[in-house]
Design a protein around this nucleic acid. Sequence first.
DNA 1: AGTATGACCTGATGGC
DNA 2: TGCCATCAGGTCATAC
Length: 225
Amino acid sequence: MRGAAEPLLAGHTVLEVTRHGKHILLRFDHGTLAIHLGMTGKLLVDGVPTAYLRAEFVMDGCRLLFDDIRQFGRMAWGSGLPANVARLGPDPLEISAEAFAERLRGKRGRVKAVLLNQVFLRGLGNIYVDEALHRAGVHPLASSLSRARAVRLHGEIVAVLKEAIAGGGSSISDYVDTEGRRGSFQDRHRVYGREGEACLGCGGAVKRIVVAQRGTHFCPNCQRK
DNA sequence: AGTATGACCTGATGGC
DNA sequence: TGCCATCAGGTCATAC
Protein backbone atom coordinates (compact mmCIF):
# COMPACT_ATOMS: atom_id res chain seq x y z
CA MET A 1 0.00 0.00 0.00
CA ARG A 2 1.09 3.55 -0.72
CA GLY A 3 -0.49 6.36 1.26
CA ALA A 4 -0.99 7.40 4.85
CA ALA A 5 -1.87 3.92 6.06
CA GLU A 6 1.17 2.20 4.57
CA PRO A 7 3.00 1.40 7.84
CA LEU A 8 -0.19 -0.07 9.23
CA LEU A 9 -0.99 -2.40 6.37
CA ALA A 10 2.28 -3.33 4.69
CA GLY A 11 2.71 -7.08 4.57
CA HIS A 12 -0.79 -7.85 5.83
CA THR A 13 -3.47 -9.79 4.00
CA VAL A 14 -7.03 -8.79 3.13
CA LEU A 15 -9.13 -11.61 4.55
CA GLU A 16 -12.54 -10.39 3.49
CA VAL A 17 -14.31 -7.50 1.76
CA THR A 18 -17.77 -6.56 3.00
CA ARG A 19 -20.13 -3.61 3.08
CA HIS A 20 -21.47 -1.84 6.14
CA GLY A 21 -23.88 0.95 5.23
CA LYS A 22 -21.97 3.24 2.90
CA HIS A 23 -18.64 1.89 4.09
CA ILE A 24 -16.57 -0.71 2.28
CA LEU A 25 -14.74 -2.84 4.82
CA LEU A 26 -11.39 -4.50 4.19
CA ARG A 27 -10.84 -6.96 7.03
CA PHE A 28 -7.26 -7.78 7.95
CA ASP A 29 -5.91 -10.15 10.56
CA HIS A 30 -5.13 -7.21 12.85
CA GLY A 31 -8.14 -4.95 12.26
CA THR A 32 -10.48 -3.41 9.72
CA LEU A 33 -10.05 -0.59 7.22
CA ALA A 34 -13.29 1.20 6.39
CA ILE A 35 -13.45 3.16 3.15
CA HIS A 36 -16.22 5.69 2.54
CA LEU A 37 -16.44 6.96 -1.04
CA GLY A 38 -18.19 10.18 -0.11
CA MET A 39 -19.73 11.54 -3.27
CA THR A 40 -17.08 11.25 -5.93
CA GLY A 41 -14.83 8.53 -4.56
CA LYS A 42 -13.92 5.50 -6.65
CA LEU A 43 -12.21 2.22 -5.92
CA LEU A 44 -10.62 0.98 -9.12
CA VAL A 45 -8.94 -2.36 -9.77
CA ASP A 46 -5.89 -1.76 -11.98
CA GLY A 47 -7.23 1.68 -12.90
CA VAL A 48 -5.36 4.66 -14.26
CA PRO A 49 -4.10 7.01 -11.52
CA THR A 50 -5.37 10.60 -11.75
CA ALA A 51 -4.43 13.83 -10.01
CA TYR A 52 -7.00 12.90 -7.36
CA LEU A 53 -5.43 9.65 -6.20
CA ARG A 54 -5.83 9.26 -2.43
CA ALA A 55 -4.28 5.86 -1.88
CA GLU A 56 -2.93 2.92 -3.78
CA PHE A 57 -3.05 -0.65 -2.48
CA VAL A 58 -0.36 -2.70 -4.17
CA MET A 59 -1.31 -6.35 -3.76
CA ASP A 60 -0.40 -9.69 -5.21
CA GLY A 61 -2.09 -9.75 -8.59
CA CYS A 62 -3.59 -6.24 -8.75
CA ARG A 63 -3.49 -2.66 -7.65
CA LEU A 64 -6.49 -1.10 -5.96
CA LEU A 65 -6.74 2.68 -6.39
CA PHE A 66 -8.74 5.01 -4.18
CA ASP A 67 -9.48 8.02 -6.36
CA ASP A 68 -11.61 10.93 -5.20
CA ILE A 69 -12.10 14.20 -7.07
CA ARG A 70 -13.98 16.08 -4.37
CA GLN A 71 -12.12 14.49 -1.51
CA PHE A 72 -15.21 13.87 0.61
CA GLY A 73 -14.23 10.24 0.90
CA ARG A 74 -12.33 8.97 3.90
CA MET A 75 -10.68 5.96 5.44
CA ALA A 76 -10.83 4.86 9.04
CA TRP A 77 -9.03 2.11 10.91
CA GLY A 78 -10.07 0.09 13.94
CA SER A 79 -8.67 -2.98 15.66
CA GLY A 80 -12.28 -4.17 15.62
CA LEU A 81 -14.66 -1.98 13.64
CA PRO A 82 -13.70 1.70 13.39
CA ALA A 83 -15.76 3.65 15.94
CA ASN A 84 -17.59 5.75 13.36
CA VAL A 85 -18.70 2.56 11.62
CA ALA A 86 -19.61 0.61 14.73
CA ARG A 87 -22.11 3.23 15.88
CA LEU A 88 -24.23 3.08 12.73
CA GLY A 89 -27.83 1.88 12.80
CA PRO A 90 -29.28 -1.31 11.31
CA ASP A 91 -29.08 -2.14 7.61
CA PRO A 92 -32.44 -1.59 5.87
CA LEU A 93 -32.03 -4.91 4.07
CA GLU A 94 -31.62 -6.77 7.35
CA ILE A 95 -34.07 -5.13 9.73
CA SER A 96 -37.66 -6.43 9.65
CA ALA A 97 -40.51 -4.14 8.62
CA GLU A 98 -41.98 -4.38 12.11
CA ALA A 99 -38.70 -3.52 13.79
CA PHE A 100 -38.23 -0.61 11.39
CA ALA A 101 -41.71 0.70 12.17
CA GLU A 102 -41.03 0.45 15.87
CA ARG A 103 -37.72 2.25 15.51
CA LEU A 104 -39.32 5.02 13.44
CA ARG A 105 -42.08 5.42 16.02
CA GLY A 106 -39.49 6.48 18.56
CA LYS A 107 -38.16 9.27 16.38
CA ARG A 108 -39.45 12.80 16.08
CA GLY A 109 -38.60 15.10 13.24
CA ARG A 110 -39.03 15.09 9.50
CA VAL A 111 -38.99 11.63 8.02
CA LYS A 112 -36.46 12.63 5.36
CA ALA A 113 -33.98 13.84 7.98
CA VAL A 114 -34.53 10.69 10.03
CA LEU A 115 -33.85 8.42 7.05
CA LEU A 116 -30.65 10.31 6.19
CA ASN A 117 -29.38 9.80 9.73
CA GLN A 118 -26.93 6.91 9.51
CA VAL A 119 -27.27 6.21 13.22
CA PHE A 120 -30.97 5.58 12.72
CA LEU A 121 -30.53 3.44 9.61
CA ARG A 122 -27.32 2.86 7.71
CA GLY A 123 -26.83 3.17 3.98
CA LEU A 124 -29.49 5.54 2.63
CA GLY A 125 -28.32 8.70 0.87
CA ASN A 126 -30.21 11.60 -0.62
CA ILE A 127 -31.21 9.90 -3.88
CA TYR A 128 -32.62 6.74 -2.35
CA VAL A 129 -34.49 8.56 0.39
CA ASP A 130 -36.29 10.68 -2.21
CA GLU A 131 -37.05 7.63 -4.36
CA ALA A 132 -38.30 5.49 -1.48
CA LEU A 133 -40.51 8.25 -0.08
CA HIS A 134 -42.10 8.77 -3.48
CA ARG A 135 -42.82 5.09 -3.97
CA ALA A 136 -44.29 4.90 -0.50
CA GLY A 137 -46.48 8.00 -0.98
CA VAL A 138 -44.88 9.69 2.01
CA HIS A 139 -44.16 13.43 2.04
CA PRO A 140 -40.54 14.21 2.99
CA LEU A 141 -41.77 16.60 5.69
CA ALA A 142 -44.06 14.03 7.31
CA SER A 143 -43.26 13.82 11.00
CA SER A 144 -45.20 10.84 12.20
CA LEU A 145 -46.36 7.82 10.24
CA SER A 146 -48.94 5.21 11.05
CA ARG A 147 -47.58 1.73 11.56
CA ALA A 148 -49.03 0.66 8.21
CA ARG A 149 -47.34 3.50 6.36
CA ALA A 150 -44.04 2.83 8.13
CA VAL A 151 -44.22 -0.83 7.09
CA ARG A 152 -44.94 0.20 3.52
CA LEU A 153 -42.08 2.69 3.59
CA HIS A 154 -39.70 -0.03 4.71
CA GLY A 155 -40.87 -2.22 1.85
CA GLU A 156 -40.21 0.55 -0.67
CA ILE A 157 -36.78 1.27 0.82
CA VAL A 158 -35.87 -2.38 0.34
CA ALA A 159 -37.31 -2.42 -3.18
CA VAL A 160 -35.46 0.70 -4.27
CA LEU A 161 -32.16 -0.52 -2.84
CA LYS A 162 -32.48 -3.93 -4.48
CA GLU A 163 -33.33 -2.42 -7.85
CA ALA A 164 -30.50 0.10 -7.59
CA ILE A 165 -28.00 -2.58 -6.65
CA ALA A 166 -29.19 -4.74 -9.55
CA GLY A 167 -28.76 -1.74 -11.84
CA GLY A 168 -25.22 -1.12 -10.69
CA GLY A 169 -26.07 2.02 -8.73
CA SER A 170 -26.79 5.59 -9.80
CA SER A 171 -24.16 7.38 -11.88
CA ILE A 172 -25.19 11.02 -11.88
CA SER A 173 -21.71 12.29 -12.57
CA ASP A 174 -18.85 10.29 -11.12
CA TYR A 175 -19.85 6.94 -9.71
CA VAL A 176 -18.32 3.83 -11.29
CA ASP A 177 -17.66 0.34 -9.95
CA THR A 178 -14.21 -1.21 -9.48
CA GLU A 179 -14.05 -1.97 -13.21
CA GLY A 180 -14.89 1.61 -14.15
CA ARG A 181 -18.44 0.81 -15.29
CA ARG A 182 -21.24 3.30 -14.74
CA GLY A 183 -24.51 2.29 -13.12
CA SER A 184 -27.90 2.57 -14.82
CA PHE A 185 -30.30 3.29 -12.00
CA GLN A 186 -30.18 7.04 -12.64
CA ASP A 187 -32.37 6.33 -15.68
CA ARG A 188 -35.04 4.91 -13.41
CA HIS A 189 -35.25 7.68 -10.86
CA ARG A 190 -38.87 8.69 -10.47
CA VAL A 191 -38.35 12.02 -8.71
CA TYR A 192 -34.67 12.67 -8.02
CA GLY A 193 -33.33 15.28 -10.44
CA ARG A 194 -36.71 15.58 -12.19
CA GLU A 195 -37.90 18.95 -10.90
CA GLY A 196 -40.69 20.32 -13.09
CA GLU A 197 -41.09 17.07 -15.00
CA ALA A 198 -44.20 14.92 -14.87
CA CYS A 199 -44.74 12.61 -11.91
CA LEU A 200 -44.83 9.07 -13.26
CA GLY A 201 -47.73 8.33 -10.93
CA CYS A 202 -50.14 11.21 -11.51
CA GLY A 203 -48.67 13.39 -14.24
CA GLY A 204 -48.34 16.42 -11.98
CA ALA A 205 -45.11 18.38 -11.72
CA VAL A 206 -42.32 17.08 -9.51
CA LYS A 207 -41.41 19.72 -6.94
CA ARG A 208 -38.05 20.51 -5.39
CA ILE A 209 -37.57 21.92 -1.91
CA VAL A 210 -34.71 21.85 0.60
CA VAL A 211 -34.99 19.52 3.59
CA ALA A 212 -32.16 18.88 6.00
CA GLN A 213 -29.98 21.01 3.71
CA ARG A 214 -30.51 18.58 0.85
CA GLY A 215 -32.21 19.01 -2.47
CA THR A 216 -35.49 17.15 -2.05
CA HIS A 217 -37.66 15.99 -4.92
CA PHE A 218 -41.24 14.83 -4.50
CA CYS A 219 -44.76 14.87 -5.90
CA PRO A 220 -47.08 17.05 -3.76
CA ASN A 221 -50.05 15.13 -5.08
CA CYS A 222 -48.85 11.57 -4.53
CA GLN A 223 -46.93 12.13 -1.32
CA ARG A 224 -48.86 13.11 1.81
CA LYS A 225 -47.73 14.19 5.25
C1' DA B 1 -33.31 15.87 20.98
C1' DG B 2 -34.18 18.51 17.03
C1' DT B 3 -32.70 21.84 13.73
C1' DA B 4 -29.71 24.91 11.36
C1' DT B 5 -25.30 26.56 9.56
C1' DG B 6 -20.75 26.31 7.88
C1' DA B 7 -16.75 23.78 6.48
C1' DC B 8 -14.56 20.63 3.50
C1' DC B 9 -13.70 20.10 -2.07
C1' DT B 10 -13.84 20.40 -7.28
C1' DG B 11 -16.22 20.56 -11.66
C1' DA B 12 -20.20 22.07 -14.13
C1' DT B 13 -23.15 25.71 -15.14
C1' DG B 14 -25.21 30.22 -15.87
C1' DG B 15 -25.06 35.22 -15.82
C1' DC B 16 -22.90 39.27 -17.27
C1' DT C 1 -13.63 34.91 -23.98
C1' DG C 2 -13.40 35.05 -19.26
C1' DC C 3 -14.45 35.90 -14.63
C1' DC C 4 -17.35 35.10 -10.67
C1' DA C 5 -21.11 33.22 -8.00
C1' DT C 6 -23.73 29.22 -7.22
C1' DC C 7 -24.78 24.46 -6.76
C1' DA C 8 -24.20 19.43 -5.84
C1' DG C 9 -23.90 16.24 -1.54
C1' DG C 10 -21.84 12.97 3.16
C1' DT C 11 -20.26 13.87 7.40
C1' DC C 12 -18.71 16.41 11.23
C1' DA C 13 -18.20 20.38 14.38
C1' DT C 14 -20.61 23.91 16.45
C1' DA C 15 -24.43 26.68 18.06
C1' DC C 16 -29.12 27.47 19.43
